[in-house]
Amino acid sequence: YFCHCCSVEIVPRLPDYICPRCESGFIEEL
């Protein structure tokens, strides 16, 4: 997954599918 807020590849935090770095939901499956 790619976080558009951090502009990095991340492993989303489940079950909410949010970025573990910034806690944004603005992520996209690569």
Score class of each variant (00 low, 15 high):
F26L: 15
R13P: 10
V11W: 03
E9I: 04
I18S: 12
G25E: 10
C22G: 01
D16L: 10
S7K: 02
C19V: 00
F2Q: 05
P15F: 01
E28F: 03
C5K: 09
C22M: 07
H4A: 07
S24F: 08
E29Q: 09
F26W: 15
D16M: 14
I10L: 03
Y1D: 03
D16E: 14
D16Q: 14
G25Q: 05
E28L: 02
S7F: 08
C5G: 11
E9A: 14
I27S: 15
I27G: 11
Y17K: 15
E28A: 14
I10V: 05
I27C: 09
I10A: 05
P20F: 01
V8Y: 05
S7P: 01
R21F: 01
Y1H: 06
C6M: 01
Y17Q: 14
I18P: 04
P12D: 09
C3H: 01
C19W: 00
E28R: 03
P12V: 07
F26S: 15
L14C: 07
D16A: 09
D16P: 04
H4D: 07
V8S: 09
I10T: 10
Y1C: 04
C6K: 04
E23W: 01
D16T: 10
V11E: 15
P20W: 02
P15Y: 03
R21K: 15
V8R: 09
C5Q: 13
C6L: 01
E23D: 01
R21E: 12
H4G: 07
Y1A: 04
L14F: 02
I18A: 07
R13F: 06
I27H: 06
E9V: 06
E23Q: 06
E29Y: 06
E29R: 09
L30S: 14
Y17L: 13
C22F: 02
L30P: 07
E28W: 02
I27M: 06
P15M: 10
Y17P: 12
P15E: 08
F26T: 15
F26K: 13
H4F: 13
C6E: 03
R13V: 05
I18N: 03
V8D: 10
H4Y: 05
E9H: 13
I27Q: 09
H4T: 13
E9S: 05
I10S: 06
F26C: 06
I10W: 04
C3G: 00
E28C: 07
P20C: 06
R21W: 06
E9L: 03
I18W: 05
H4Q: 12
R21G: 06
S7W: 04
H4C: 05
I18H: 11
C5M: 15
E29T: 12
F2S: 04
R13D: 11
C5F: 08
L14T: 11
S7E: 14
F26Y: 08
C22H: 07
C3Q: 02
L30V: 15
Y1G: 05
S24D: 12
L14S: 08
S24I: 05
I27A: 07
G25A: 14
Y17V: 09
C3Y: 01
C22R: 01
L14D: 10
Y1R: 02
L30K: 15
I27W: 01
C6I: 01
C6V: 01
I18G: 09
V8G: 06
G25W: 07
P12H: 03
R13Q: 12
V8F: 08
Y17S: 08
V11S: 12
H4E: 04
E9P: 08
R21L: 05
D16F: 07
P15W: 02
F2T: 12
E29C: 15
G25R: 07
C5W: 11
S24R: 11
F2Y: 13
C5T: 14
I10P: 09
S24Q: 09
E23A: 06
S24G: 13
G25S: 13
P15C: 01
D16V: 03
E29S: 10
D16Y: 02
F26N: 15
P20Y: 04
S24T: 06
C3D: 01
D16K: 07
P15K: 03
D16H: 08
H4I: 11
G25C: 08
P20R: 03
C19S: 00
C3S: 01
Y17R: 15
C5L: 07
C5V: 07
D16G: 11
P15G: 08
F26G: 15
F2G: 01
V8C: 13
E23K: 14
G25V: 10
I27P: 09
E28G: 07
S24E: 08
Y1T: 02
E28T: 15
I10C: 06
S7L: 11
E9T: 09
C6Y: 02
C19L: 00
V11A: 07
L14M: 14
C5A: 12
S24Y: 02
H4N: 14
C5H: 14
R13C: 04
E29G: 12
I10Y: 09
E23V: 03
I27T: 09
R21T: 03
V8K: 09
S7C: 10
V11H: 11
R21P: 00
P12N: 04
C5E: 10
S7G: 08
F2V: 04
P12S: 04
I10N: 08
V11P: 06
E23G: 15
C6P: 02
E23R: 10
C3R: 01
C19M: 00
D16W: 05
V8A: 12
F2D: 02
G25L: 12
E9K: 10
L14N: 09
C19E: 02
S7T: 14
H4L: 08
I10R: 06
V11F: 11
C6D: 04
R13N: 13
L14R: 07
R13E: 15
V8N: 03
E29V: 11
E23L: 08
Y1M: 06
C3V: 00
L30Q: 13
Y1W: 03
E9G: 08
